[in-house]
Amino acid sequence: MGPIIINPGAQIGHNCRIHSGATIGATNGSNKAASIGNNVFIASGATIIGEVKVGNNAAIGANALVIKDVPESVTVGGVPAKIISYNDSSSNMVKLRNY
């Protein structure tokens, strides 16, 4: 579907899953980009623009346009993105194992 584009000003937490075609960018000439929490799932084609915060365990749906903060442990989707479910990202994440 395409490359993953991440602005150098973005902050991305641990164990995030970012699919093809996703963009995490800045806007209006700013170099300030999103702050993504831990265990966040970002589906194909999702766009996160500007200095927004995405909470831990959130899921961003395919082709969603995120321009406002996303709370922890919800699923957002649509253009612009809004809460569509109170399910967290856990079903979409790879479980890390201790060996």
Rank of each mutant, 00 (worst) to 15 (best):
N7V: 00
N56L: 05
G9L: 01
N92W: 15
P3H: 10
A34N: 03
A62T: 15
V54C: 08
A59G: 10
A43W: 05
T23G: 01
T23R: 03
E72R: 09
E51M: 03
P8L: 00
K95N: 13
G78D: 11
P80G: 06
G21W: 08
E72G: 08
I5C: 11
I67P: 06
I4W: 01
P71Q: 01
E72A: 14
E51V: 01
A81W: 02
K32D: 14
V74G: 02
S44M: 12
I4V: 15
G78M: 03
Y99K: 14
T23Q: 00
N39V: 08
A10G: 03
A43G: 08
G9H: 05
I84G: 10
I48S: 11
N28D: 13
A43N: 14
D69G: 10
N31S: 12
S90G: 09
I18V: 13
F41K: 10
A81R: 02
Q11E: 03
N15I: 00
P3N: 13
N87Q: 14
P8R: 01
G55W: 08
A33D: 03
A26S: 15
Y99Q: 13
K53E: 11
I24Y: 02
G13I: 11
I36W: 08
C16R: 09
N98M: 11
P8I: 00
F41D: 12
V74C: 04
N87F: 07
G50Q: 00
Q11Y: 01
S35Q: 12
G2N: 07
K32Y: 10
S90T: 14
S90L: 12
N28A: 14
S44N: 14
P71A: 06
T23F: 01
I67V: 15
G55H: 06
N92A: 11
V74Y: 08
I4C: 01
C16E: 05
M1T: 14
G25A: 00
I84E: 04
G9A: 02
S30C: 03
P80R: 04
N31K: 09
A10V: 01
Y99A: 12
I6A: 05
A43Y: 09
N98W: 12
A26Y: 05
I83K: 08
G29L: 02
M1L: 09
N98A: 11
M93D: 11
N38V: 05
V66D: 06
G29A: 07
N31M: 09
I12V: 15
V76M: 03
N98Q: 13
I6Q: 06
A33I: 01
H19Y: 14
G21D: 05
G37I: 11
S20D: 04
P8S: 00
V79S: 09
I49S: 06
A43C: 06
A62C: 03
C16Y: 07
V70E: 05
N38I: 03
V76C: 04
S91W: 04
N15Y: 13
